[in-house]
Design a protein around this nucleic acid. Structure first.
Lengths: 194, 194
DNA sequence: TTTATTTTGTACCAATTAGTAAAGTATTAT
DNA sequence: ATAATACTTTACTAATTGGTACAAAATAAA
């Protein structure tokens, strides 16, 4: 295999694209915004991402799953108290220093920002949110198996509950900056884990 | 006051604009889309809405509040069981025939779709979501006053809880089409009203 | 060194964007 | 009728959009 070598790191520029999409939203992020942030020219871009903006966004979603969801799943797999982990996870969302910030959920945003004709992207975003739901469900099941939960609710139902809480918080955070109210809101919701 | 009379009904074309914004999203709705749906020319449009798309959206938000939130508030004011009203309200969101459909919340959508530089619109959208929160809070307070609720939680905290549920459902509906799961999700959330 | 292969930079393009300018039309007040 | 006002139509513009074409450049293999 011969040929001129790439002068950029594929995942590095993908991370830059993620930043732009997350900050500006899918519809508002222009090709120029993205190219500038990625630091590559049009030729390189359309060579690497033949599908243009849509393909870039698809790959950026994969990257976000890789970076964020896998990390959560791994942490849950190794931690000894998955229920406490979930509590801490949601409470951390109420702070100013939240990893999510006020940028919201990458996939929830996508579901709302992507135009109707790009329904393929929406389906993928929904799929990844279902993955998050599964992660929550597994954590709850593990908590039950360990005898940390006495609730009669099914683990799957609680997984749905938690992904809905996640979806809600990512919107509510944008209308409500009072951290105490947010923390109180999370506390009330987490009462379901008993 | 003299002058050529308008040949269209101001609120009628506003309703058309609401449809387009709700269907396509703020960023994806082009001036052409809007003008075509409203059935007026550019001249008339920029005459009636000097601020262009942004002003149109601001007025469209007012219109949605007028049509939707005021109706909820009025219904709550006259109904005899506000708690049951809230239960019915949320359960109705889980059906296919939901008034919200899969278009989501006009204001939640706005918070996520509007670009960062249009922060004025976001502030207004957040304000209207706070209005919804107040409506929920009042309903809960009324339920408490009537002795329909024995919970120790404050009405305001429950109002926040309910607006967060609203925000969550409007996203979760887009990833989860199974109505039974949605109904179960709502049931679990409404257990907090006891 | 030549050739094949892969990547990059530049110039270009057609379509669409939001928005303006201005001439013309329909009405009321005088 | 005439003038003042309020609205509409049409044509235009300047900028930006995503995307393409293609020659030049950088490398590995022959």
């Amino acid at each position: 295999m011969a040929g001129r070598p790439k002068i950029y790191d594929e995942t590095a520029i993908l991370d830059k694209a993620v930043e732009v999409f997350w900050e500006k939203g899918y519809a508002n992020a222009t090709a120029d915004d993205l190219l500038h942030a990625m630091g590559i020219g049009k030729g390189s871009f359309y060579f690497a991402f033949k599908g243009g903006k849509e393909e870039l966004f698809r790959k950026s979603m994969e990257r976000v799953v890789e970076l964020n969801f896998k990390a959560i799943r791994d942490a849950l797999a190794t931690c000894e108290n998955p229920v406490q982990f979930i509590r801490d996870f949601f409470l951390s969302l109420t702070g100013n220093d939240s990893p999510v910030g006020n940028k919201g959920c990458y996939f929830g945003n996508a579901l709302i920002q992507v135009s109707a004709d790009d329904s393929g992207l929406k389906i993928i975003a929904a799929k990844y949110l279902h993955l998050l739901e599964e992660i929550f469900t597994e954590a709850v099941q593990k908590g039950k198996d360990l005898g940390l939960l006495e609730t009669q609710e099914l683990a799957a139902a609680l997984g749905t509950y938690l992904v809905n809480l996640w979806n809600g918080l990512n919107v509510t955070r944008r209308m409500e900056t009072d951290q105490h109210k947010l923390a109180e809101l999370v506390r009330m919701n987490l009462n379901i884990l008993h």
